[in-house]
Design a protein around this nucleic acid. Sequence first.
DNA 1: CGGGATCCCAAGCGATACTG
DNA 2: CAGTATCGCTTGGGATCCCG
Lengths: 236, 236
Amino acid sequence: MAARAPRGFGQAGGVARTVERVGERWALLIVRDLLAGARRYSDLKAGLPRIPTNILSDRLKELQQAGIIRRVPTVRGGYELTPLGRQLEPVILALERWGWAAPGEPAEGEVLTADALAVTLRAAFRGEVAAGFPPTEYVIHTGETSVSAVVDAGTLDVMDVGPDALPQPQRRVAIPPPADVLEFRVERERLSELLSGDTPPLDVETGDRGLVDRFRRTFRFDAAPGEDVTADASVA
Amino acid sequence: MAARAPRGFGQAGGVARTVERVGERWALLIVRDLLAGARRYSDLKAGLPRIPTNILSDRLKELQQAGIIRRVPTVRGGYELTPLGRQLEPVILALERWGWAAPGEPAEGEVLTADALAVTLRAAFRGEVAAGFPPTEYVIHTGETSVSAVVDAGTLDVMDVGPDALPQPQRRVAIPPPADVLEFRVERERLSELLSGDTPPLDVETGDRGLVDRFRRTFRFDAAPGEDVTADASVA
DNA sequence: CGGGATCCCAAGCGATACTG
DNA sequence: CAGTATCGCTTGGGATCCCG
């Protein structure tokens, strides 16, 4: 007996506990996508094109047992985060921020889905700054992905508006569409620059160009003040 | 050619990028321990008793190539975080917080090392609250582990004071030892309660019992206000 | 002696095929 | 559409061995 905790880390700290539950391959990406709302099996699979279906199936089972996700009874194949799972949001946002700050080329053939972009925007969102602006809607096109980000009084709501977007569950709060709307397209490779406060070329399709600056203040990954990001990755 | 990005996620978002770099098994625990300061190969191995030596070796190489850690030239077998690696601190702290908030038994046979406990205390630390108290030193014994946490004007410094603690590099700031000192022992299973604002039995060895309350205000995982943590993990 | 490298086996992962 | 089943390959685990 005493199965010696097979495949555990043998560690009692919080990091070890968390990694044991969501550290398996693909698990955090599933959580990321579910952070945007309930999704069906096929939605998850479409958002994670390279996940093998058996792995998706395994992870969904494991995450359920860990109390992180649950099935949506009313939707066949539907899954959503539990309250415990939603508490992983700070983890996801911290991972998202570091990922954009880390150097390295984007690598071709990668997809940036609407759910991923929604998390990106939430990670870059500065509520305090945004609270100083009138309600604004930003429609962002990049690669094959299109999302709408509605900013109102320090709150942010992102939704997929792409060609194959699912019908959205009604908005949480029924707000009138903002008067200020900026719609633009930016290259995927330039998104990082845009969110770092840089001014890459972007193609404004609708709205006042002056709103671009508002966007750049509202969504911004702050290079930690006083901390140098550039690290020497060259190794013998 | 075009090696088809073997074993990548095929995702462009920040979460995917981060998980690709530090998502391998054990990697984040290595980063966690290095967050406490530079460590040698044997220190890391001792702090991670269940890691196979080849895996430790592999991870150290990978983390170096990712620019997250580097060798300490002056210390044989020494490793430390790069500035980029130190930027993972928010990630580690977020993981630590979720891990303590998640339900589940501690599981026996697990170790809680000094480096892990240091991260726990940093994750639970409330600088704003602490700033209101006079400088205080807390010496905490739990299980086999003993650390000293010096709190001064909203800053926290944790160091190993266990029987086999390494000789500490000199304190960052040469401060006089605080007048207020609390030394206590708490069972490992009760640590979670203590850091949740509960009042489990603890054995005060030195200092005024009134300082216990100061400790409880200084180190505290906040149950996110208005968010219910308890989730139903029971599954068919 | 500490700091790794090698080996072998088991477990997890990935691709594809298949079923309710 | 929502998964299971199967199979080959890759990775991790554990013990041992080697090197400076």
